[in-house]
């Protein structure tokens, strides 16, 4: 749906915010772009949406070049910006209708009503935007982005500083949009969001895409699993017989933690368990945890 080729961006200050980005976004997917502050997420979105000029490289949206064929490309895109850039004196209804007009769509009050209702904005439709809370303003920005029935939706840090209620509403809207075939690209540094919502994850750091992967695949591939054994008897030190296994003591010696790689040919679980029983160490219970995207992400970014 979106094809980014050798894209670079150098700001007037000489700062190189994007370095030779190549990225394909598939039609109908939810793509999460993860990266620490200043990684270049907003810059990348700004270029695709026509707010910033690319320095090098090309971008096409559904086959339309964002510069040569900007009208066709931009018509397909809705953008919810990171910052709360809203008008002040206009009513909610007026500002959403304005957006629809900007994108060359004929009036459709029924559709605008549907969006406002989905975002719990309907009873605020005649209020001036400046009288709304921050959360409500963000809803207005989402409504504006959806006003022209976009095929691609960019959400730049949609949940930064947003209350639980709005998060819930927003993810419902996102799921509905996805179900209707809309491609969604969201940036975030909240990993849980990507983990919950995304089909694929891209990680950007210092202006470079360092990884693009299916979310499930990524978790699988990079996911280390831990087996936690709750011991019947407290251990003060790890018996030397168990030293060969990747075990550590935790919780003052009441737990043994076994770390293993799920992708490895031999995970070593059986051998470890036999070693435990040979050493006559009994356990009451066991559980496993898998590393989250967060762990993976922190690992990836700090490696650089």
């Amino acid at each position: 749906m979106i094809s980014i080729n050798n894209l670079s961006k150098t700001y007037a200050t000489g700062f190189r915010a994007l370095k030779n980005i190549n990225l394909e976004i598939k039609r109908g997917e939810i793509f999460a772009l993860l990266g620490p502050n200043g990684a270049g997420k907003t810059t990348l979105i700004g270029i695709v949406c026509g707010i910033l000029k690319p320095s090098e490289g090309t971008v096409t949206v559904d086959g339309h070049d964002i510069i040569a064929d900007y009208r066709a490309a931009r018509s397909l895109i809705g953008l919810v910006p990171q910052e709360l850039h809203t008008d002040a004196f206009e009513s909610v209804w007026a500002t959403v209708s304005f957006s629809r007009g900007l994108f060359n769509k004929p009036k459709n009050p029924a559709y605008v009503e549907k969006i406002l209702r989905a975002l719990s904005l309907w009873d605020k439709k005649d209020n001036r935007i400046m009288t709304l809370s921050g959360g409500m303003k963000r809803r207005v920005l989402i409504a504006k982005a959806l006003s022209h029935e976009p095929q691609v939706l960019f959400l730049d840090e949609p949940t930064a500083g947003v209350d639980v209620e709005l998060r819930k509403d927003m993810w419902q809207v996102v799921r509905d949009l996805r179900a209707s075939g809309v491609t969604i690209i969201l940036t975030t540094h909240y990993i849980e969001e990507a983990e919950d919502m995304a089909d694929r994850v891209g990680v950007i750091s210092k202006g470079e895409i360092i990884l693009v992967e299916d979310k499930a695949e990524l978790m699988h591939k990079l996911g280390k699993k831990q087996l936690i054994l709750q011991l019947q008897k407290k251990l003060d030190v790890l018996p030397p017989a168990l030293a060969a296994h990747n075990l550590t003591l935790a919780k003052d010696g009441t737990e043994l933690v076994f770390t293993y790689d799920t992708q490895a040919e031999r995970t070593g679980v059986t051998a470890m368990l036999s070693a435990l029983s040979a050493a006559d160490i009994r356990f009451r219970d066991l559980s496993t945890t898998q590393s989250s995207l967060e762990d993976i992400f922190v690992g990836l970014v700090s490696e650089r």
Binding site: I51, A72, P81, H85, D87
Partner: peptide
């Protein structure tokens, strides 16, 4: 000044 120009720049408009 307010930043709302983003929308005009991102619209299919010359």
């Amino acid at each position: 000044f307010t930043g709302t120009i983003y929308e005009i720049l991102s619209a299919p408009i010359s």
